[in-house]
Computed example of a mutant assay.
Amino acid sequence: MADSLTDMIVFARVVAAGSLSAAARELNLSLTVASRRLARLEARLGVRLLNRTTRSLALTEEGAMFHARVVRILADIDEAELEATRSKSIAAGLLRITSTVNFSRLHLAPLLAEFQAMHPGLRISLHASDTVVDIVEGGFDLAIRFGALADSSLIAQRIAPDARIICASPAYLDRRGRPQSVEDLITHDCISFGDPPAGEWAFADGSSARLSGALVTNTGEVAHEWALQSAGLVLKSAWFVRDDIKAGRLETVLPHLPLPASPIHAVYPHSRHLAARVRLCVDFLAERLEEAWQTG
């Protein structure tokens, strides 16, 4: 077991350092020993982890998946050692988080910087993507997601409210008219986004509208910009459009027809002992996001 752990440490350091020789120097090992440990690890796993040339190295597909797990294992070991001697109110080690691009930029980035400053022993890696990733396979500790959780093998904790709003610029609505019913949406340019893009908008009363429009994108940020440019209607989380509505840049459409609730959840794998860095981060985000919702 000890040798296996050392081999994983060497592998992780090689990836971080970018070369076998640099990793060997950092670990105070000879190049021969470091190379032998990496080869032994690949032999034990029965797969090649790195494609190596005289000038460069790159993770194989299997190597990338294994590396994500190794990083988490080593971070858990670091935290276990710290927790043995320090308070459980202190977060330490590596915390890997994933969320959507726009929410990461506007809301998570400043909050996570604040959280890291409160816990100097913590390192945070934020993966921003509008594609929903497999957090277990991707080696993530935590995902911040909108709406219901489809995968019951994960734990979802509600951390903030949300409301979805159909909106458009006043200029667009002056030009095309203000919809009065779900049926009216058929005649409007509805901006679709997502990965894959949404094909319809469903309302809380069970009604729905198929989307028709010339503009489709994989990111909500682009869809938001198109709406501001008077290109059509868009369905967005209140977290992204409240300021524009208050300022008059966007106008709510069909406010009398509620859309299904889509609260924000912290999603993480089942764990008998949730790492302190995850537990403390979830609690911190829940507190700060609730404050932001109430004052927004």
Rank of each mutant, 00 (worst) to 15 (best):
D3H: 12
R13H: 00
A23Q: 01
A24T: 03
N28H: 05
L29N: 02
V33N: 02
R40H: 09
E42P: 04
L49W: 00
N51T: 12
R52L: 03
R52P: 02
L57W: 03
T60D: 11
A68K: 08
V71Y: 03
V71K: 07
A75M: 06
A75L: 10
D76P: 10
D78F: 04
E79M: 03
E79H: 03
A80T: 13
A84Q: 15
S87E: 15
A91E: 06
L94T: 09
R96E: 10
R96L: 09
H107P: 02
L108A: 01
M118E: 14
V133G: 05
L142A: 13
G147C: 08
A148D: 14
R164Y: 05
I165M: 09
I165Y: 02
C167H: 07
S169I: 07
S169P: 11
Q180L: 13
E183P: 12
I186N: 11
H188N: 00
F193G: 00
G194H: 11
P197Q: 12
G199R: 14
W201T: 15
G206S: 08
S207R: 12
S212Y: 13
A214V: 15
A214N: 13
N218R: 12
W226D: 02
Q229C: 01
S230W: 06
L233D: 03
W239T: 00
L250V: 04
T252Q: 15
P255F: 09
I264N: 02
H265C: 11
H265G: 04
Y268T: 01
H273E: 15
H273R: 15
A286Y: 14
L289R: 02
A292Q: 06
T295F: 08
